[in-house]
């Protein structure tokens, strides 16, 4: 069962990523959605339409910030200007917690716009933990770090990805955004058992989960977020819920985005696993929620 300190003592249900093609539908139809996840970097702006839409969304819905550009795995440290802009947005959105990816993506001020892989070593874990500690302290809200999909492993790695993740979050004392689709994608690309990953992360630190679809090629999988969630990922999600308890869950759909109703229906499938989990968990645990 997760500790609510990693969610700022808020319990959220099933959310959807706020995406531009759905702005019109959401603002005109006001669908019933537990919460929206926003990409922080899309709203770290001075004004304009993104802000205008966000103001309207925030008037009716809980918003949770998810970033793609902090890069806690940067060996040169965090970009302080980025962190300041992020804090400004945090103060505006009143997000209960904030998340970003366990990766790097820029060096010497040049940006890749990708979530790049890290060697799973003690030194790298120390760098990530230090960066996450700085971010969490500065932002003054709980930080959840997300496991990424990866396509390459480093020869220098001395631990599994889940050991690496566990060491970092313990050292930084932060939460986890457990992306079960990313676990599945990486398990196929690297040849590990995804259940072993799910069973060995520190479950009490899981603040949020992500589910998504991906694209399967002959020899690898790419995390494209452009398909429905596949059955093996739903099974992993069910197991993660068993171990972590009902956890705020977000369906990611970022490319070839279908109608809002289709995305919403896919997200609500997660509710089945929640209900099953609530019916089967110990009474004491159910009361905590």
């Amino acid at each position: 069962m997760n500790h609510t300190c990693f969610t700022n003592f808020q319990s959220l249900g099933i959310g959807i990523g706020l995406r531009v093609p759905h702005y019109g539908h959401i603002l005109s139809q006001r669908p019933t959605v537990d919460w929206f996840e926003i990409i922080s970097e899309n709203y770290m702006v001075e004004g304009g339409r993104p802000f205008e839409v966000l103001e309207q969304i925030m008037a009716q819905y809980q918003v949770v910030q998810h970033g793609v550009g902090l890069y806690p795995g940067s060996a040169q440290g965090l970009n302080r200007d980025h962190l300041r802009k992020l804090k400004k947005l945090v103060q505006r959105t009143k997000t209960p917690w904030i998340s970003d990816h366990l990766c790097w993506g820029s060096v010497d001020g040049t940006y890749s716009h990708d979530l790049l892989p890290l060697p799973y070593t003690r030194e790298m874990a120390a760098v990530c933990a230090e960066n996450l500690r700085i971010a969490q302290d500065f932002l003054e809200i709980p930080f959840a770090v997300e496991n990424v999909s990866s396509y390459a492993e480093f020869k220098d790695s001395t631990m599994t990805e889940w050991e690496f993740l566990a060491e970092i979050v313990e050292r930084a004392d932060c939460g986890i955004l457990l992306d079960v689709n990313n676990i599945y994608v990486s398990s196929v690309n690297h040849g590990f058992n995804p259940l072993e990953y799910v069973e060995n992360v520190p479950h009490e630190r899981v603040a949020q989960m992500h589910i998504a679809g991906h694209s399967r090629y002959e020899r690898f999988i790419i995390d494209t977020h452009d398909h429905p969630v596949i059955d093996p990922v739903w099974k992993l999600y069910a197991r993660a819920l068993e171990l972590c308890g009902p956890t705020a869950t977000l369906l990611e759909w970022d490319d070839k985005i279908p109608s809002f109703d289709e995305v919403h229906a896919e997200a609500l499938k997660a509710g089945r696993y929640w209900r099953h989990n609530l019916e089967h968990q110990p009474v004491e645990a159910a009361r905590v929620r």
Binding site: S112, H113, D114, L116, P117, P119, Y151, A152, E153, F154, K155, D156, N189, H190, G191, R219, F220, I222
Partner: peptide
Amino acid sequence: DREIRSTPALDAHERLELYHRQYWYRL
């Protein structure tokens, strides 16, 4: 060759190339 592990499905060069092409496609 120096940094990336090969797997039976993809060699080290192909794995780095996946990131390389994604960088270009995105930009």
